[in-house]
Simulated scan of single mutants.
Amino acid sequence: MKLKNIHNLISIAIVITMAMLFCSCADNYKRVGDEAIKKIFPSAVAEDFTLTYTETDGGKADDGDSRSKIIAVLRSPISNDFDNLDFPYRTFPKGLKVEFFDDKGMKSTVTADYGIIYSKTNLIDLQGNVVIETEDGKKLEAPQLYWDKGNDWIFTQQKFKYTNKEEGTIMDGEGMDFNRSFSFFHANKTYGLMSIKEKKDD
């Protein structure tokens, strides 16, 4: 009889212990201080934003000051400035348009649905319906492109479509990099249509 009572007491103790364990597993912990997820707000918001990139050409103007030339103009309906963070950046949530100018003054235009400029690295991340068009009829379309402003280099690992009306070529591919003037163009994987013009001998 005593053995049975001891067995019952042990069973009740186990049940109570298990119930206490299950009750203590409820997440009633309130996150405070550094553990709480911090909301990030821009330090400034600009509407009808325009940013002009210039560089000095080494010459002197008539008044003795160094001459500078415009290499790119970025426009966007709205810009959110997060330069108050440890890794500063600027976003363009309603899209952006960038106009590039080469040494001869020829203009290339880039449009995208969304963009981010990382201030410390001079890298621009263009996302959503990215289109690059040049004055001589070249057109590049991709879902995402990166522009390394410091090295004047553009690249992506996404799929792309490159159309050259002057040469009558259409190239589809995946992953590529090129310079801003399209004088160097490297594609990782290509497939598509290309027509070759034959030269007639006199």
Rank of each mutant, 00 (worst) to 15 (best):
L85R: 08
E198T: 13
T163F: 09
K197I: 15
A46I: 08
L193M: 05
D62S: 14
Y118G: 01
I132A: 07
G150D: 13
K159R: 12
F155R: 14
F92D: 02
A72P: 02
G168R: 03
K2N: 12
Y118E: 13
I6R: 09
D102F: 05
K94D: 09
F41Q: 09
T50C: 03
G64A: 14
L9G: 12
T56I: 01
M176A: 05
G175F: 05
N8I: 13
Y146S: 04
N28M: 02
Q127Y: 12
S66M: 11
W153F: 10
I37M: 12
E35L: 10
G58E: 07
V110I: 11
I78S: 08
M106P: 00
T91L: 01
F182V: 10
T17P: 03
D125H: 12
N8F: 07
V130S: 02
P93G: 02
A44D: 02
W147H: 09
P88E: 05
F155G: 02
V110Q: 07
I40E: 11
P42S: 08
D62H: 07
W153I: 00
K97Q: 13
Q127M: 07
E141F: 10
L126M: 15
E135L: 07
A187E: 01
D103S: 14
D113K: 12
E198P: 10
D62I: 10
Y89V: 02
E166T: 09
L96C: 05
L193S: 05
Y191R: 11
S68I: 03
A61Q: 14
T17D: 00
P42N: 01
S119L: 06
D27A: 06
K189H: 05
Y146M: 07
S108G: 02
I12H: 04
F49A: 01
D103P: 10
K159Y: 04
Q157D: 07
A19M: 13
Q157T: 14
M20Q: 07
L123D: 11
W147L: 01
V98C: 01
K197V: 14
K2Q: 10
K200N: 11
V73F: 14
P77C: 04
L193T: 09
F41E: 11
K2I: 08
F185P: 00
D81R: 00
A13R: 10
A44S: 04
G175T: 03
D57I: 05
D83C: 10
S24D: 07
D48W: 04
S195W: 01
L9I: 15
A112G: 03
A187C: 03
I10K: 07
H186T: 00
T163E: 14
G192P: 09
G168M: 06
D48K: 11
Q127W: 08
K94G: 03
A44G: 02
I117L: 11
D81Q: 06
K159L: 00
I10N: 13
T91V: 00
C23W: 15
T163H: 08
D202N: 09
D48R: 13
I14W: 06
R67M: 09
M20T: 03
N28P: 01
T169L: 01
S11N: 15
D27V: 08
S76F: 12
I16Y: 02
G128D: 08
G105Y: 06
K38H: 11
V131W: 08
Y53N: 04
V73S: 15
K161P: 04
